[in-house]
Structures are given as structure tokens and as C-alpha cells.
């Protein structure tokens, strides 16, 4: 992750529902804190009830990442409400802020209310793609969802991330096939691919001449038997 030093301090992870945004956002935040940045992870996911960044809260805090979660997160109160504390990240300019946004255009909708702040400061908005997800496996599906996410969030996607995976059954050919499709999307949408994300053992098998960065991740969202 070379861009953590000079890149804009506001970094958003969006994508199709279930594309792996949360794993990547959590890993990104940990790496940012590890490289000495004051780091805040904002869990904006009001779509997903389980497997969310707030569940690794203790690990994040222990590693220097401050976590801001939706109100009532992991409680029985199933209310999509965001805390006022979120606004503080726009005034404290010393922190690197990573936004873990909910899936699809529905999850991206919550970003709209912060629009004035993103007008005043540069940001990076990653769009995470897993071509092995059933409703995001064709160029047309992915492009139209990207448009919807941009429309709802009123923000511009700046980079793509290839997170093609089949969970613990991922093979290197899945990632490469995903990359072929995402490269076409990158060309039609004129948005560069920033990274290929995946567990290190898989990324190590990629050929040397890949045209983008690699982002090895550790998997945090696991069922109890793994």
C-alpha cells in the first residue's frame, strides 16, 4: 500500500453487496495505523447485520485504529442510524479516515449526506469487485452498479480493486479471469485498477508483470469453525 503516505486522507471503500469491502477496509486501516498514521475506520454499513468491521473492533483498537460504528451496532436494535461523531472526522484533518460503506447503491446512499465535506477535500474512492458474485459477474452488471453507486453517493469512483475470490476455494485462475473482465471495465469506465486483493499465498502465484499493485489481506470475518 504505497499510497498511504501521500494519498488523500479520506479513503472510501464501496462495491457490490458482498464484494469484500469490509475485509479490505479493515486491512487497509490496520496497515495505515501500522505505518504510523493516526487512523479512523468509519463503519458506514447499515445494510449488513453480521460479518462487519465493528466485529473486529477490539483488534482494531488494540492496533491503533479508532473505530466509529453505527448506533446500536451488534445489538438487538435493528435501526439504521449513524452517530453524530462521524462529522468529527472531517474537522480533525490530522487523521487518515477509512470509510467502510455498505453494499450496492443502497449502502452508498448514506454517503450523500456527507457530500459537502467531500467537495472540500480530495478523496480516494475504491470500488471493490468480485466477479464470482452472482449479480456482478458481467461487464454490464458491474458498470451499471458502479453508475448507481456514484449517483447515490454523489461521489466519483477513483480506482477499482480486483477482489475476485471464491472464499477458501479461490484459485489463481479465478483471480486472473476476474482481472481480464475488470480490465475491460477499467477501459470502458476510464477508471484505473489500483490493486488485486487476496490472501498472500495466492497473490504470490501471480505472474510478475501484473499491471497494478497487489494488496495482500488477512481474513478477519470467519465463522466459528474456521
Amino acid at each position: 500500500m504505497n499510497d498511504t503516505i501521500n494519498a488523500p486522507r479520506l479513503v472510501l471503500f464501496t462495491g457490490h453487496f458482498g464484494s469484500g469491502k469490509t475485509e479490505i477496509a479493515v486491512n487497509y486501516a490496520l496497515r495505515s495505523a501500522d505505518s504510523g498514521h493516526k487512523t479512523i475506520l468509519v463503519d458506514l454499513d447499515i445494510v449488513n447485520p453480521f460479518f462487519r468491521s465493528s466485529e473486529v473492533g477490539a483488534h482494531l483498537e488494540a492496533n491503533g485504529v479508532k473505530l466509529i460504528s453505527p448506533n446500536f451496532v451488534s445489538t438487538a436494535v435493528d435501526v439504521p442510524s449513524l452517530p453524530a461523531e462521524i462529522y468529527s472526522v472531517f474537522s480533525d484533518k490530522s487523521a487518515k479516515v477509512i470509510f467502510d460503506v455498505g453494499g450496492d447503491e443502497i449502502g452508498a446512499r448514506v454517503l450523500g449526506q456527507f457530500h459537502p465535506y467531500f467537495q472540500k477535500e480530495p478523496y480516494l474512492m475504491y470500488y471493490v469487485i468480485n466477479t464470482k458474485r452472482p449479480l456482478s459477474c458481467t461487464e454490464q452488471d458491474i458498470l451499471s452498479m458502479m453508475q448507481e453507486v456514484q449517483r447515490m453517493s454523489r461521489l466519483r469512483i477513483t480506482h477499482l480493486i480486483n477482489n475476485t475470490n471464491l472464499s477458501y476455494e479461490t484459485e489463481i485462475c479465478d483471480i486472473i479471469n476476474g482481472h481480464v473482465l475488470i480490465s475491460q471495465i477499467s477501459k470502458s469506465a476510464e477508471i484505473p485498477i489500483a490493486y488485486i486483493a487476496g490472501v498472500k499465498e495466492l497473490l504470490d502465484q501471480l505472474p510478475d508483470e501484473m499491471d497494478c499493485g497487489l494488496f495482500p489481506i488477512r481474513i478477519f470475518m470467519k465463522p466459528p469453525w474456521r
Partner: peptide, 14 residues
């Protein structure tokens, strides 16, 4: 070929 799905989505597609 295989796809990666949430249990709920898989129920619906099935």
C-alpha cells in the same frame, strides 16, 4: 461454474 454467495441469496437463486 462456482459463484460466491450469501446463504440467503443462494436460497433465493436456488
Amino acid at each position: 461454474s462456482k459463484v460466491l454467495m450469501k446463504g440467503n441469496e443462494a436460497i433465493a437463486e436456488a
